[in-house]
Amino acid sequence: MEAVAVFTTAWTASPQLPAVGFTPNWSQEGFWRQSLRQVVRIGAGGGRVRIRLSNAYGTSPLRIAGATVARAGEGAGVEPGSLRRLTFEGAGGVEIPARGQVASDPAELVVEALESVTVTLHLDAATGPATFHAQAFATSHRGEGDRLDDLDGDGFGETSESWYFLSAVEVDAGRTDGVVLFGDSIVDGFGSTPGANRRWSDALAERTGRPVLGAGIGGNLLLNDSAWYGEKGVRRFGRDVLDQAGVEAVVVLLGLNDIGFSETDEQPTYKPAPVVEAEELIDGYRELIRQARGRGLRAIGATLLPFGGSDHWGERAAKVSREVNGWILGAGEWDAVVDLNEVVADPEDPDRLRGVYDFGDHLHPNDAGYEVMAEEVAGCF
């Protein structure tokens, strides 16, 4: 009897409601008679590839007329000889129900860990507003008509820095040592160089040799839903962490937006922003720990980063942040802890990010900051 291949999630993006977003995107207008080519970097290699597509926030069925996968070339191009047609239960296309998802059949394609692949979707019927991931820090491409077999990418004339419908890429790696980073824009890679794969998740994958999945959503909250910034962490944890294949640990870095959104009146997308105390966040973390352990995952807590000088800063927010970090480090409730606050803090002013690690908004690290964070977290593995 032939052995059943064990698939491992090699890349993921957490689905979000269609929204205006941080940069212009196509989520609200959707797609019609167009092809969408997306480039993603995978964290595991294998001989077969399959994808997962999400219509989680769709209000009507989503028709996928066809799909292909290939090793990425330059720009929107693909590596010659690597293009493969994807099927769905043997069919060339599929209809995904509103609020549903679907997995493709495996396609024979040899891929290596840390290389990029393209996934191309032909969307021949009006999709309506599109389930998407706002901040990709990578370029997606759109072209008119059926561009599934386009090799050089010249037919893709429009670009976006978001991902649409694509929620996971899986390979038959048979690995069970994957790590999920769960959190907000810092997990998402805000402040890293776009198109360069310099996110925190990329840096950790390079250091550990493990599949590392970024399950961050910019602006995400642990305790409250947001029209702009995704479902609350305690609710989306099951979909974005526990449902990933081949994962053995999760690192949680989430809560700074819960603390800091109420400190400013200048950003309307931060509203509503309830005033949150440390005890409420700790209860939320305990719920994540409970969910993770219920599925046999190690739960690793990361301290909140310094944010002095940012639009999240204020006396109350600073107090709550210190209380939360004290609990993370001292309560003994996580399976392991990592003090990222200390790693990136300015030695002369510990409430602030060290200048060489500051993207410029006093809230998000830059490429160098993500590197030292990855080095610290790598010690847990």
Rank of each mutant, 00 (worst) to 15 (best):
V94G: 01
Q38L: 04
A65F: 12
V39E: 04
D150G: 03
V117E: 02
A136H: 01
F137I: 01
E79K: 11
D154K: 14
A138F: 08
A44G: 02
A65S: 15
E79S: 14
I96Q: 01
A113Y: 08
I42F: 04
V69I: 13
G153A: 04
P61L: 06
T139M: 01
A113V: 03
V40M: 04
H122E: 12
G143L: 05
V40L: 06
R52V: 00
L53A: 14
D152F: 07
E74N: 13
T59D: 15
H141G: 06
V110T: 09
G92E: 15
G128H: 09
G81W: 00
E108A: 15
A125V: 15
A76D: 03
S60E: 14
L62D: 10
R52A: 14
A138K: 08
R142D: 05
H122L: 06
P129K: 03
P61R: 07
T59C: 14
P80W: 04
V69P: 01
G45P: 05
G145Y: 11
V39Q: 12
G128E: 00
E115G: 01
Q28G: 10
R48C: 05
F137C: 05
G92D: 10
F31G: 01
G75M: 13
V110E: 10
R50G: 07
E29K: 07
G58D: 04
A72Y: 00
H133F: 00
V111C: 05
E112Y: 04
P129D: 03
R48H: 07
E29Y: 07
D124A: 15
G46S: 07
G66H: 12
V102Q: 07
S35Q: 06
I64F: 11
A103Q: 15
E95I: 14
Q38S: 03
E112N: 11
G128N: 03
Q34C: 14
S82C: 09
E89Q: 15
L83R: 06
V119E: 05
F31D: 11
G58K: 03
Q28W: 04
F132M: 07
G73A: 11
L86G: 05
D149K: 12
T68N: 07
D150W: 01
G46L: 09
R84I: 02
F88G: 09
V49D: 09
L53K: 11
R48E: 09
R50V: 05
R41L: 00
Q101L: 08
S35W: 09
A138W: 06
L121C: 08
G81T: 02
G43E: 10
A56Q: 13
T68I: 02
D124S: 13
V102R: 12
D124R: 08
T127R: 04
S82W: 02
A136N: 01
V119P: 02
T118Q: 15
V39W: 00
V49W: 02
T118D: 11
N55Q: 04
R142M: 13
G128S: 07
F88A: 01
V117H: 00
R33H: 15
L83S: 06
T59P: 02
L109E: 01
A65D: 09
G73Q: 04
R71Y: 00
R142T: 12
E144P: 05
H141D: 05
G45Y: 08
G145E: 14
G153R: 06
G30W: 12
G128Q: 07
G81S: 05
E29R: 14
L114V: 09
G43W: 02
F88R: 01
R85P: 09
S140R: 10
I51D: 00
